[in-house]
């Protein structure tokens, strides 16, 4: 249950964590039990999950921006309705995730404020621009495809509220990937210019999408404890390889070339990709990607422009409450 979120964090964290409780906690994890909000948990588990779930939520919210850019310019009413529904879903996913994060004891308002202040990160992928309609197809096909690859194992994450939120998200995400692939298929079966547009979008998105799985296993700073706590079920490189293996045949069907001339298929059938440019990834994470400043400015403006709505709704609720209390007193 999501309810008692806000009453546990501080009291628990102030205790010195004794080894017996920690061992008991790990035993529950090892037995595949789900951890629920009011259960005892190590402070580091709470902190890791708050960071991961809130960043996931921020990514859903910021993720509405690159696609929202094309709603008014979708090529048909059918495409427009689908894109609008997809962007609404991303908003819903952000809200499920904020609710799950809040059960760990930090309010949504604090989490959102941390993101607006630049203190919390969101997925690097949303700092790339959507230059043509083919980018919308590519995002659905690849960005949502990579997200599904990441999120399916999270449905079995040890933290109950996160796992339950991910089940809902994954059910809805499948539509996103299919609508993206359909856009790509339509473009690839269209004119030479349309097919070139699809290839150009794939060229620009391929490497940033591979970076979505995070740094290589050898350098990933969060993996060890996350694996021990069953927050993470597969390593970054394992998920990346699964994604590449699933995607190459889909690209072949479209007749598009993966922009990696060094890619080869090994004896086991795995597609081995070339070295990823991790310097670019670090730059984007550091705030120097093509759209970082735009995205943050858009989020801050939306938050500020919405302030009067929050204030008016709170004032109206307070007025009604006051009136009810006054009537009850009469």
């Amino acid at each position: 249950m999501y309810t008692q979120a806000l009453n546990t964090a501080e009291a628990d964290d102030r205790h010195v964590e004794d080894a017996a409780r920690a061992a008991q906690f790990q035993a529950r994890i090892d037995a595949e039990e789900r951890i629920e909000p009011n259960d005892w948990m190590p402070a580091a588990y709470r902190k890791t999950l708050t960071r991961q779930i809130s960043q996931h939520a921020h990514s859903e919210i910021v993720g509405m921006l690159p696609e929202g850019n094309w709603i008014t310019r979708a090529p048909s009413l059918r495409r427009k309705a689908a894109l609008l529904a997809k962007v609404q879903d991303e908003c819903g996913h952000g809200l499920y995730l904020y609710a799950a994060a809040e059960t760990l004891g930090t309010s949504r308002e604090e989490l959102v404020d941390a993101m607006l202040a630049g203190k919390a990160k969101y997925s690097s992928i949303f700092n790339y621009p959507t230059l043509t309609w083919a980018d919308i197809g590519t995002i659905g096909w690849l960005v949502d495809g990579a997200a599904i690859m990441n999120q399916i194992p999270l449905c079995r994450c040890s933290y109950g509220p996160y796992a339950r939120a991910m089940i809902r998200v994954c059910k809805e995400e499948s539509f996103h990937q299919r609508q993206g692939y359909e856009i790509m298929l339509t473009l690839c079966r269209g004119s030479t210019e349309q097919k070139a547009m699809a290839q150009d979008a794939l060229n620009r998105w391929w490497w940033p999408v591979l970076m979505m799985f995070g740094p290589p296993d050898a350098t990933s700073q969060h993996s060890d404890t996350s694996t021990k706590w069953k927050i993470k079920r597969f390593s970054n490189d394992e998920l990346r390889q699964k994604f590449v293996d699933a995607t190459v045949p889909q690209a072949q069907y479209l007749g598009l070339a993966i922009p990696d001339p060094g890619m080869t298929q090994d004896a086991d059938g795995h597609w081995r990709y070339s070295e990823i440019d991790w310097a670019e990834f670090k730059q984007v994470l550091a705030g120097n990607g093509p759209c970082n400043r735009d995205r943050m400015a858009a989020r801050r403006k939306a938050h500020e422009d919405g302030a009067w709505v929050r204030e008016a709704a709170a004032a109206y609720a307070a007025k009604r409450q006051h009136r009810q209390t006054a009537q009850a007193a009469e």
Partner: peptide, 21 residues
């Protein structure tokens, strides 16, 4: 699940949008 809203009417509308699409 849960959601934030300033009053019951807005909570119902938000629940419709978030949980019954």
């Amino acid at each position: 699940g849960s959601l934030h809203a300033s009053d019951a009417t807005m909570a119902l509308q938000a629940a419709r949008d978030i949980y019954t699409r």
